[in-house]
């Protein structure tokens, strides 16, 4: 197998076409799929498991599964993106029924390099509090929120990923957002931002 960098021309193919080539042990097609979906898969796994080490292990496992099972893979009505998201979500759920986030790590780096140190710290603490609240959600609620909100999937697509009805996904979302609001209520209430500044 020659695993080389993806060729420009390969990037124009759909995921499903690339997957067909991966089934023929085409390393370039595999590399192209990897390039296309790595960031999204890492972000999804990060929202699900709450820390980098576990998220990247899940992502590795998911991509290795793509390679390994490619000859057996059939679209069966679902797109590669849907199928692959399902693999990532299921690996996350299997891995950690209750994630142990590293809050400051999960909060990531501050977006603005010119921000004052205390503002940076406040922003990181705020993100860490949200990461903790998200981590406390039941796995399926967390998955529904991650897929529909951060991954910007439609309710139908998220339902496909989670193998649930659209109504069930909506219920998960309502409960997830209600829980987050309850956890973050003191910070979410009107005027909280002004109170924090004082």
């Amino acid at each position: 197998m020659g695993l080389t960098k993806p060729k420009e021309a390969m990037g124009e193919n759909s995921d499903e076409v690339l997957m067909g080539r991966v089934a023929q042990r085409d390393g370039v097609a595999y590399s192209c799929l990897l390039t296309r979906h790595l960031a999204s898969a890492t972000a999804l796994a990060g929202r699900m498991v709450g820390n980098r080490a576990d998220a990247e292990e899940v992502v590795q496992e998911a991509f290795l599964r793509v390679w390994k099972t490619a000859p057996r893979w059939r679209p069966d009505g679902a797109s590669f993106r849907t199928w692959f998201s399902r693999v990532v979500v299921n690996l996350c759920i299997d891995r950690h029924r209750r994630p142990k986030p590293a809050p400051l790590e999960a909060a990531g780096d501050p977006a603005d390099g010119g921000m004052l140190a205390d503002q940076q710290l406040a922003q990181r603490e705020e993100a860490a509090a949200l990461a903790r609240a998200v981590a406390l959600l039941p796995p399926r609620q967390r998955a529904a929120l991650a897929l529909c909100y951060w991954q910007e999937m439609s309710n139908v697509e998220a339902a496909d990923v989670l193998s649930l009805s659209v109504g069930a996904v909506e219920s998960l979302l309502v409960r997830a957002r209600r829980s987050l609001r309850a956890s973050l209520e003191p910070q979410l209430s009107p005027g909280a931002a002004e109170r924090r500044k004082k």
């Binding site: 390393g27 590399s31 998220a55 992502v59 991509f63 290795l64 780096d109 951060w150 973050l184």
Partner: peptide, 24 residues
């Protein structure tokens, strides 16, 4: 507004190369 400010995890630079090596 809070959810939008939660940064996404980005892959470490060597992750893609590691996955390719393992797959090979």
């Amino acid at each position: 507004a809070r959810l939008d400010r939660l940064p996404a995890l980005t892959p470490t630079p060597g992750l893609a190369a590691l996955i390719l090596a393992r797959a090979a």
